[in-house]
């Protein structure tokens, strides 16, 4: 399904701020895989997701989705394969446009946009139904500007938008990190539901090791731009947070005392 072959990315090459963010990342996902990704700050988690999404070109390596090489495709062209939810709730939606308009735009991901009316009547009914199912009180606010919604509501909406058109791959970049714990839990539960319902292939970055173990069928740990641990199936299910900490300590030589990973 997704095949990442040995990608490298260095930011600010040749300057004092040179940062090798991806150091030969390779990863193959099967259809229906739900992979959680953990790792310290600067491990290359978000960079990997951005490389897949095409935010900037990678230095070397290839990215394939269902056998199609998308390495050279621009960000907007790859969007037809990808659903994305970002860390910042502001990023995934257009604040000055209504819920309805946002959803209608998302429904046309990967299709050509012409001079047909932007939102049809049938769509309106459909979206209202979708929103009613997630039970966030949004179904009565279709014409409200998205900027008026709370962070949690916006993330939930972004998630729905990412899946109106079933994506080949769903990219979740710490999409609950900016939310308060209660809301984060809700959005995470919704995420799990949506992925199961549409049988999506997904990659989810998280700082929370418990979540990383609880959700998905596979877990990947990154460190210094590399994947250092990749576990699936029964072995993953039986993981404990302590196991992950040990793994991490081995990899990083015990230098992670101050890392944000400790907090979770």
């Amino acid at each position: 399904m997704l095949e990442i072959r040995d990608i490298y990315k260095t930011f600010n090459a040749g300057t004092q701020n040179e940062k090798r963010a991806l150091n030969g990342v390779s990863l193959t996902l099967n259809d229906g895989d739900f992979v959680t990704v953990i790792g310290g700050n600067g491990a290359g988690k978000s960079t990997t997701l951005n490389a897949i999404a095409g935010v900037w070109p990678v230095d070397s390596g290839n990215i394939l989705i269902d056998g199609v090489d998308i390495t050279k495709l621009s960000e907007f062209k790859r969007a037809k394969y990808l659903g994305r939810v970002f860390q910042d709730p502001m990023t995934g939606t257009a604040a000055t446009m209504s819920i309805l308009e946002n959803m209608a735009i998302a429904a046309r991901r990967g299709k050509s946009r012409g001079l047909r009316w932007g939102v049809t009547k049938e769509e309106k009914e459909l979206y209202m139904e979708m929103l009613r199912k997630v039970d966030l009180g949004l179904e009565d606010r279709l014409t409200s500007k998205v900027g008026l919604l709370s962070g949690g509501q916006r993330q939930a909406l972004t998630l729905i938008m990412a899946t109106i058109q079933k994506p080949q791959l769903l990219l979740l970049d710490e999409h609950t990190a900016a939310l308060d714990p209660k809301t984060a839990k809700k959005v995470l539960a919704l995420t799990d539901e949506v992925i199961a319902e549409h049988k999506l292939t997904a990659i989810m970055i998280t700082h929370n090791m418990k979540d990383a173990i609880q959700y998905g069928n596979r877990l990947v740990m990154m460190h210094e731009g590399k994947i250092i641990y990749d576990v699936a199936g029964e072995e993953k299910k039986n993981l404990k947070v302590a196991d992950l900490l040990v793994k991490f300590e081995q990899a990083s030589g015990g230098e992670f005392a101050n890392d944000r990973m400790m907090l979770s």
Partner: peptide, 20 residues
Amino acid sequence: TELGSSIRATGCNGNMARAQ
């Protein structure tokens, strides 16, 4: 229209627009 809406989205949030 679809095209016009996409222009509005472009001006409002480029990241969102490209992701869509």
